[in-house]
Structure formats: structure tokens, C-alpha cells
């Protein structure tokens, strides 16, 4: 079927069968590959995108359920202040190793700081618990969220 997908401020006509995960429409059809495939079962967070500003796992979000929503991916998050602050903190602290989980980490971190601009370390751990990093960059993720929060306050 043909659907309208609002993604990163543009409306795209996409061809996809009902039940197709949003992840694969983004990656294979729109060829925006910053959003990653890690597990397909909502347990790693690599595929995290924003749906109307809220982080969701795109591997378990079905295309027919997002027709009226605004989808945002890693490629454009520098366009808002929270996204820019998070990316700047990530760069400053060199959080990445292999980097494969980091789009998802950044999308979740933006979600956290959007709803809670000064999270405690416990709140960070809690919110970020669905984003696995096999390279275990966790302490830099934690530090970068704190740094981004400071940047936003300044």
C-alpha cells in the first residue's frame, strides 16, 4: 500500500505492506541509514527515532500506525537546541567507539533532556536502560548527558 510518511519535516510517499516496521521503511526505502538495526525486537535501542518528539523503537513501530505522526531521525536532530547540545557533548567527550548504537543513544538522550532538563544520574540510568551499547561506553554517555544538560542551562 502507499502511505504518506512525515519524516524530518517532509512528507514522503512510501510503498510498504502493513506490519512493516518503520525502521525498514526509513533504512531501505528512504535510505536514511543513521537509524540502525540492532535486534529487531525492541531490546537494544539502536533503532530509536522520535515520534512527535518522543523516542520510540522503530523496529517495533509499524508503518500503518505512524501516518499522522511526525517522525524525526538522527540526521536532523542538530536543528533543535537540545539535539545540538547533545551532539556537542558527545563530540566533546568522544563518547563513541564502534558508534553503531550511538544514533539511538543520542535520540534517547534528547528525549530525556527534553522532558527533564536536569536529570540525576539515577534518572539517566533509568531512562537510558533500553539503549544497549556493546562497546560499553556507558560512563561517557552518562557524562555527556550531564554536560549537555549544563550546556542547555548556560
Amino acid at each position: 500500500m502507499t502511505l504518506n510518511l512525515k519524516l524530518n519535516g517532509q512528507t514522503h510517499q512510501v510503498e510498504a505492506e502493513p506490519g512493516t516496521p518503520l525502521l525498514w521503511v526509513i533504512r531501505d526505502e528512504l535510505k536514511l541509514t543513521g537509524t540502525k538495526f540492532g535486534c529487531g525486537v525492541a531490546s537494544c535501542g539502536a533503532c530509536t527515532v522520535h515520534l512527535d518528539g518522543e523516542p520510540v523503537r522503530s523496529c517495533q513501530t509499524f508503518i500503518e500506525d505512524v501516518e499522522d505522526a511526525e517522525v524525526t531521525t538522527i540526521e536532523v536532530v542538530d536543528q533543535n537546541s537540545v539535539g545540538a547540545a547533545v551532539q556537542a557533548a558527545w563530540a566533546e567527550l568522544d563518547v563513541v567507539q564502534c558508534g553503531y548504537c550511538q544514533s539511538g543513544q543520542i535520540m534517547s538522550a534528547i528525549g530525556l533532556l527534553t522532558e527533564n532538563s536536569k536529570p540525576t544520574l539515577e534518572e539517566i540510568d533509568d531512562y537510558m536502560s533500553g539503549n544497549a551499547c556493546r562497546c560499553a561506553t556507558y560512563q561517557r554517555i552518562r557524562a555527556a548527558i550531564v554536560l549537555a544538560s549544563e550546556k542547555l542551562e548556560a
Binding site: Q87, W90, D94, V95, V96, G99
Partner: peptide, 21 residues
Amino acid sequence: VQRKDTPPKINGTAKYAMDLH
């Protein structure tokens, strides 16, 4: 000295083999 591969890995532009089309 900072990592050379940080910039593309925080904005979605780094290309992994999985990203090849």
C-alpha cells in the same frame, strides 16, 4: 587529541557495511 571518527558517528552519516545500498 580527539577521535577522527566521532563526527560521522554522532550525526548518522558514518557508513557501516549494514548501511550500504
